[in-house]
Amino acid sequence: MDFNFKKLASDASGFFSRAKQLTEETFLKAEKTELDAHFENLLQRADKTEEHTKRLLSCLESYLQPNPTVRMEDVFYEKLELKKEGSRQNNLEHLGQAMQDGADEFGISTPYGSALNRVAQTEFKLGGAEREFLTNSANNTLLPIRRFLEGDMRTIQKERKILQGKRLDLDSCKNRLKKAKTLESQAVAEADLRVAQAEFDKQVEITKLLLEGIQTAHNNQLKCLRDFVEAQMNFYATAHQHMADLQRELNGVSSTGSNIIPQEEGHNGHFNSYTTSVENQSNENKRLDPGDMGTKQARVIMDYEAVSPQELSVRMNDILIVYRLPGLDPDFVMAEKGGKRGRVPLSFLEII
């Protein structure tokens, strides 16, 4: 192996010179070159950016994948550039599968089996929506932030270490010039000082450019955060819509199931038959005929959060003025409350 002994000796000499200078600065309070205030502010902002970005990345990873074992497995596959075969079911899909198995066991022709089947299908939809949300968040938010830490931030730290070494070389040359006693040694020390000063100034400019680029990184991460919020908003809006649809379907299953409950014969049977007919008649009176365009009062039976600007958020026991409009979805009615107007699902209301 070919060694460059001159370079090796020069590096060793520089290492011991820096170590000596750092020791004198630490214990003997030797003078050292100070950086300007603007540069110091850039360094502090870089440190804060790295600290908070690492914390943000850690929290995002924990949120998107709470299981640390799975996270380590993903890192393992990523480092080895391996591809997973198939995809693991998430919790919602596991729940949906358990309900689907129950529905198959009890039969979807029964009210309970039919309800299990409907809920299972909705859980599968929620699981798919969650998987899409996690994928989008990982690609559009998590990956860019990790690349910033592993790329730009690592380069900045590397250049800062080089700058620290150049600064120690510069101060070491200054000390040698102060201690020089002969003209010859002074001339050598002055030449070394000029070289060290030029290298230090060059490294300062390089590091400064990198530090000023952190503002661009902040702008890029702002876009990542917006993408994350949009993906999260779409996921929750989709989940809310699926659950609202499921609730309407289950209300239909419940009302259908109440008509097929077997009745006892005799006096009790006549009483149950009479009670069922009264309840059905009452429910029919509380429904709003699709062709009825009149204005009515309705009571809210469950809180509802609007998922679009055209809808109205209401709370349980609110009293609303409701009516239909031509072309409106039959599952919705127009509602007015406190001077505000918007659509509300009919399944959340009880006509007074």
Score class of each variant (00 low, 15 high):
F3K: 01
K7N: 03
S13T: 12
A19R: 08
A19Y: 12
K20I: 10
L22E: 15
F27K: 07
E31I: 13
E31Q: 14
L35D: 13
F39G: 01
N41K: 05
N41Q: 13
N41W: 11
L42A: 04
A46P: 01
T49H: 11
L57E: 11
E61H: 02
S62K: 07
Q65L: 09
V75N: 12
V75H: 13
G86M: 05
Q89Y: 14
L92R: 10
G96A: 06
Q97L: 07
G102I: 10
E105V: 00
G107W: 04
S114A: 12
L116D: 02
L116Y: 04
K125N: 08
G127V: 07
G127H: 00
A138R: 02
A138Y: 03
N139H: 08
R147D: 15
I156P: 08
E159C: 08
D171F: 07
S172K: 01
L177E: 14
L177F: 13
K179S: 09
K181A: 08
V195S: 07
A198K: 05
Q203M: 04
I206P: 04
T207W: 04
D227T: 05
F228A: 07
A231M: 01
A231N: 09
A239L: 07
A239M: 10
Q241Y: 12
Q247D: 15
Q247M: 14
G252I: 04
V253R: 09
S254D: 13
S254A: 12
S254L: 13
T256Y: 13
S258P: 00
Q263V: 15
F271I: 11
N272V: 13
T275H: 12
T276N: 07
N283K: 05
K286G: 00
G291L: 08
Q297D: 11
V300H: 03
I301K: 08
M302G: 03
Q310E: 15
R315W: 06
M316T: 15
N317W: 13
N317S: 02
R324A: 04
L328P: 01
D331F: 01
V333F: 04
M334S: 00
E336S: 01
E336A: 02
P345D: 03
